[in-house]
Design a protein around this nucleic acid. Structure first.
Lengths: 141, 141
DNA sequence: GCTTGACCTTCCCATGATTGGAAACTTATA
DNA sequence: TATAAGTTTCCAATCATGGGAAGGTCAAGC
């Protein structure tokens, strides 16, 4: 198993598409790999490892900026874990805020849809609500 | 209170920014408003109403494409409510899938962060996990 | 009348992460 | 040698929104 591979193989091993590998290089997130005589990029295990790191961080929703910071901390053997944890906690807060917003939208829509016949008749509380009629969402038990 | 107003007033009344009002017109989501002799746009209550509709639909996370369909249904007095409900149910599914994905990310991160000291010491399960070390996320109680 | 400031217009560009594709080149297969 | 499959760079599109420039228009105050 070769340890220095083309961009296609690096993509397969890291889970990052070849397109995005080039992109991450262009924005300076990863170092440029070595080039063969034919100008092809070749990736060593260290770079592939970093790409895998990026891939997993993206799966956790980290922004590219955050990943840049995390990579810098990861490369620093003496980094304080507090810095990493602070980024993670901030990201948790962002994720939960987004999830809450989506849940709120979903709950409102479910409420409206529950009152919509969903048949051939034209009257529809969903449209009425979007049109500004408050009678559905107003709770006046 | 004038019933035909400038774009600024239409923005204030509908909750859609003037920028976005022009944008929605440019993509055909709303009809072009009348123009005064000086080429200024002027909005009548019907258009302002539609902009309010769009604003509320955006708050519920509908895409512009979906809003176009909803607007068409809204303008059609004889539309079957089933079509509206189908769009809403699809949107609910999208929202909940996104919320679930965010919650899963958050849960994983919370789990990792809980095991991170968050002090001056360099060892950090968060970075270890991102680096590909599975020992944290593997649950082997 | 002239200046100032607050509008309006169109146009281009940026965001964030990713994908698609074109044009040109190299390599491997048949 | 033809072809298919890789690679390179560059440009563009996505989605919804915002920023800003450059110029036209309008009202108020002096």
């Amino acid at each position: 198993m070769k340890s220095v591979v083309t961009i296609r193989e690096a993509a397969a091993r890291s889970g990052v598409s070849a397109k995005m590998i080039r992109h991450y290089e262009s924005i300076g997130l990863i170092a440029p790999p070595i080039r063969a005589e034919n100008n092809y990029r070749f990736y060593d295990p260290r770079l592939i490892h970093e790409l895998g790191f990026i891939h997993r961080a993206r799966e956790l929703g980290f922004s590219i900026a955050d990943i840049g910071a995390l990579l810098a901390l990861w490369r620093d053997r003496n980094r304080p874990s507090a810095e990493v944890k602070a980024i993670a906690l901030s990201q948790i807060a962002v994720l939960e805020a987004k999830a809450d917003a989506l849940r709120a939208m979903s709950a409102t829509l479910r409420h409206l849809a529950a009152h919509c016949h969903g048949d051939d008749r034209p009257d529809c509380p969903i449209l009425e609500n979007l049109a500004g009629d408050q009678s559905i969402t107003q709770s006046r038990k």
